[in-house]
Design a protein around this nucleic acid. Structure first.
Lengths: 191, 191
DNA sequence: ACAATGTTTCAATTCAGATTGAACCTAGAG
DNA sequence: CTCTAGGTTCAATCTGAATTGAAACATTGT
C-alpha cells in the first residue's frame, strides 16, 4: 500500500523512479490527436480515482473512455479505443452495468447495445459504501461481542486495561456506523 | 476486489468456499487457551478492518497482538505470538510507529523498546485520510483543469455534452473535498 | 445455410504488492 | 576486542487479484 510505504530509508539515495501514472492504455491508432489527448486525461482522472478506492484499472479505463465520448459507445468501439483484451472489456462492462455506472442505450439499428455513463454517481457511491464498508462494519459488531466474552473477567489491572481498550474499539465502531449515514446524506446534497 | 466480483454467473452452483478470515497467524505454542482465543479474536477484528482500508495483514496482526496485551510488548514478544517472519515484524513495527499507531515505552531495564497501542486512533485515521484521500484529491484538481482545456471548444452538441460531464465531475470533486473535513470533524466528536 | 464478425466465459498467465530469508548491523556480555 | 543474540535491510519469492487468450456462443450479412 503506497501510502504506508515507510519513509525512504535513510541510506542510499532514493532512485527517482518515474511515477508513471498515465499509461499506454489509450489506443492512438489513426485518430485525431486532440481527441486522443482528451480521452487520455479523462481516463487518467478515473484511473487515479480508482486507485483511491481500490478498483481495478481496467474498469476505470472503460468507464473513462465511455465518459469521454459525447455519444454512447458499443462494445467494439470501447475495444478500439483501449488496449485491453476483449475478455476484460466484456467483464468490465458487465460489472459497470451491475453497479449502475453505465446505462444501456438500446441501439436503434442493430441489436448491439450502446453504453453511456450514468452521471448519477450517487448510486454508484452508495453501492460502494454499502458493499465495502457497511457489510464489514456489521460483521465487526459480531467480532466485538466475541472479544468482550473472551476478556478474562476479574478486577485486576490487566482485565481493566483490556476492558478499557475494548471500550475504545466499540467507541470507534459506533462512531463509524454513525458517520456513514451522514456521509451519504452529505453526498446527496448539491447532488 | 471482492465487493465488485460480478454476481455469481448464472450457471454452475457457486461453491460455498469457506470465508476463512481467521488464520493460522497466532501462535498457540504452549500458552493458555483462553489468552490465545482472546488474541485471536482481537487480531481477527483488526484483520477485517485492515481489509476495508486495504492495509497489509501483517500490520493488522502486529497491531492486534499489541492491542490485545495488557502490558507493552517487545519485538521478541510480538514475534513469539505471531507466525510471521522477523523481517515483516521489523518493518511492520516501524510503519506502525511512523503512523502513530504505536507508542514506544522506554524499557526500564535493558535498552530494548516496548510497544503499546496508541488509543488515539484519531491521529491514525487523520493520517490515513490525508495520505490516501487528500493527496489524490489534490492531484485530481490538476487533472480536471487539463480535461477542461482539452475539451474541443465549440457550441455544437458534442462539446456541450462534454462540458456538462466535466461539470458533473467537478461537482463531485468539490463535494468530496468538502465532505472530507466534515468527516474529520465528525470523527473528532465523542472522541 | 454458411461465413464472418462480435461477445462471453473461464482456465491459464501475468503482475503488483506482501512476505520471507539470509546477509548484515549493533549492543551488550565475557 | 571478540562473540553472540536481537534487530534491520533488501533482493528474491510467494500470493492473490487482474488480465489475457482462446474456445464456445451469438449475431449479422451473403
Amino acid at each position: 500500500m503506497a501510502f504506508l510505504t515507510s519513509s525512504p530509508l535513510p541510506k542510499r539515495a532514493p532512485i527517482p523512479t518515474a511515477p508513471a501514472l498515465s499509461w499506454r492504455m489509450i489506443r492512438a491508432d489513426g485518430r485525431p490527436a486532440n481527441v486522443v489527448a482528451f480521452e487520455e486525461s479523462v481516463v487518467a482522472f478515473f484511473l487515479e480515482a480508482a486507485e483511491i478506492l481500490g478498483v481495478p484499472k481496467s474498469l476505470a479505463a472503460i468507464y473513462g473512455v465511455i465518459f469521454a465520448s459525447p455519444e454512447p459507445l458499443s462494445f467494439s468501439e470501447v475495444q478500439e479505443r483501449l488496449d485491453i483484451s476483449a475478455g476484460s472489456i466484456s467483464q468490465g462492462l458487465r460489472v459497470l452495468r451491475e453497479v449502475n455506472a453505465l446505462k444501456v442505450v438500446p441501439n436503434s439499428d442493430s441489436k448491439r447495445e450502446l453504453f453511456e455513463p450514468d452521471l448519477e454517481l450517487r448510486k454508484l457511491i452508495a453501492h460502494y459504501l454499502e458493499q465495502r464498508v457497511e457489510k464489514q462494519l456489521d460483521s465487526g459488531r459480531g467480532r466485538l461481542q466475541a472479544i468482550a466474552k473472551a476478556i478474562p473477567d476479574g478486577a485486576d489491572g490487566s482485565s481493566k486495561v483490556l476492558r478499557t481498550r475494548l471500550k475504545s474499539l466499540q467507541g470507534w465502531h459506533d462512531k463509524s456506523r454513525r458517520v456513514l449515514p451522514m456521509v451519504k446524506a452529505l453526498l446527496k446534497l448539491t447532488s
